[in-house]
């Protein structure tokens, strides 16, 4: 059902002059960016910078006041239904049904996407996200990390070519954050285009091919990590005794994944 003909070989997303205001508050004041197919694009910005507003417009949940946005070749304003066939949204809070079990949540989404054999799809995703054991339990008993994993798993059903992740690691503990990072990287490995928003430069650095900084309703910087680094003042060498961060202590004690680079980049 979700076979959407990728219209032309253009970028996965093209956003031009996007504006949105709530009353007198101008949230977006002309946002422009492109996202290449199969890439991970990070929209970086502080609270209230307009990240969520941008994502909601791209996911056809909100209408822009001005500007255009094309997702997977479809205009969000005039071809909203086509856009919805091409995307999946993982919002700021894990949008899972607490009363249902993890498996039932997955089956529900598979049914709504009119896929054959929802049960098999659910079981496959439970395995892939290490939720098989918890699959039959009600989601209300899940930890924050498990909820997020389930949330992301729900977004993958039907293999939408474009996925939005709005602050996917907000409120998660360090271990759960790493799990999410791994899940996202795996996604992009399969050719899915990912747009994620985050408040943390570190997170954008970990995952993104390209980073755009949204500030006061405009994109002020847009480039690869290397390009961004060239914009920073030249590094000065200082000798400072390195104290372990709480996160490093936590991971050392709990034996969490050592996949992450722990030298830390403070800006």
């Amino acid at each position: 059902m979700t076979v959407v003909t990728p219209s032309s070989a253009g970028p996965a997303m093209r956003v031009r002059g996007l504006e949105k205001s709530y009353g007198k508050l101008d949230v977006l004041r002309g946002v422009d960016f492109d996202v290449a197919r199969g890439s991970i694009f990070a929209l970086l910005g502080s609270n209230g910078a307009g990240k969520t507003t941008t994502v909601r417009i791209l996911a056809t949940l909100l209408k822009a006041d001005a500007g255009t946005a094309v997702v997977h070749g479809f205009d969000v304003a005039t071809q909203a239904a086509k856009v919805r066939e091409s995307i999946s949204l993982t919002g700021q809070f894990a949008a899972v049904d607490e009363v249902l079990s993890g498996r039932e949540n997955l089956v529900l989404v598979a049914r709504l996407r009119h896929l054959d054999d929802p049960g098999a799809i659910a079981d496959g995703l439970l395995r892939r996200f290490s939720l098989t054991e918890a699959g039959a339990r009600r989601v209300s008993a899940y930890s924050g990390g498990m909820r997020r994993r389930l949330d992301i798993a729900m977004s993958l059903i039907g293999n939408p070519p474009v996925i939005f992740l709005d602050e996917p690691t907000a409120g998660l503990d360090p271990e759960a954050r790493i799990e999410v990072w791994q899940a996202v990287e795996e996604l992009a490995g399969h050719g899915t285009t990912v747009l994620l928003t985050t408040q943390y430069l570190e997170e954008a650095e970990q995952m993104a091919d390209r980073i755009a900084i949204l500030h006061q309703g405009r994109i002020i910087v847009d480039g690869t990590l290397a390009e961004l680094k060239r914009l920073f003042p030249p590094a000065t060498v200082e000798y400072v005794e390195k104290q372990p961060s709480l996160e490093e202590i936590f991971l050392a004690i709990t034996g969490g994944s050592d996949k992450r680079d722990t030298t830390g980049t403070k800006s």
Binding site: T2, T60, L89, A95, V96, D97, E98, V109, R113
Partner: peptide, 13 residues
């Protein structure tokens, strides 16, 4: 509040 409403609204249903 849970965001489920938005999840459904962003799906092709």
């Amino acid at each position: 509040k849970s965001g489920l409403f938005e999840r459904f609204q962003s799906m092709p249903i």
